[in-house]
């Protein structure tokens, strides 16, 4: 048995085992839905003025074996939230909306970072300043609804969650 196979074995056995352990250790955590392996990490948001906008960044990874997709986003912080992408066109930086659902293949991630993809919170109910926290609900076709709470920061000083 070569290295690759051994690794394959340990992965195949290890992941469900880990998932089981995680489920036992933290039964109150809704992040690990039995049919989905969606993990949301490194979330942070930018300051924004009430009635205006804020961007949220982080990584959504599909650790599962089935394709999944982000189907809905909501938050008590803003009535309108979309996935946007920055693209350079005609010497200008343009923001382009990505339609939901956004598919995430097994082993793939939706990586969101400044200058690339972001979650756009529009018409903020309240101003968000450095150090504030907000909650997002991200719904996935298989992994269900997941809640993330994270801090408002800036690029040089990203809050850890």
């Amino acid at each position: 048995m070569n290295y690759r196979n051994r690794q394959g074995w340990s992965l195949r056995l290890g992941l469900p085992l880990l998932a089981l352990l995680a489920a036992c250790a933290a039964p109150e955590q809704p992040q690990l839905h039995p049919t989905g392996g969606i993990r949301i990490t490194g979330m942070w948001g930018t300051p924004g003025i009430a009635g205006r906008v804020s961007a949220a960044y982080g990584t959504i990874t599909n650790h599962g074996t089935e394709p999944d997709s982000l189907v809905a986003i909501s938050s008590p912080a803003a009535p309108l939230i979309e996935v946007h992408q920055m693209v350079e066109q005609d010497g200008m930086l343009r923001m382009r909306g990505m339609k939901l659902p956004v598919a995430i293949a097994p082993g793939d991630s939706l990586a969101m970072a400044p200058g690339g993809t972001h979650l756009m919170l529009m018409e903020l109910h309240q101003s968000l300043k450095l150090g504030d926290s907000i909650t997002l609900h991200l719904s996935f076709a298989h992994a269900g609804k997941q809640e993330v709470r994270f801090q408002i920061g800036n690029e040089q000083n990203r809050p850890q969650n």
């Binding site: 009535p79 010497g91 923001m95 382009r96 018409e123």
Partner: peptide, 24 residues
């Protein structure tokens, strides 16, 4: 400075929410 109004959304309050493509 090249710039163009774009990405116009209907706001929750019925108004118009727009963004501006621009050079940086």
């Amino acid at each position: 400075l090249v710039r163009r109004r774009s990405f116009i959304e209907q706001s929750q309050t019925g108004g118009e929410l727009y963004f501006i493509d621009h050079d940086d």
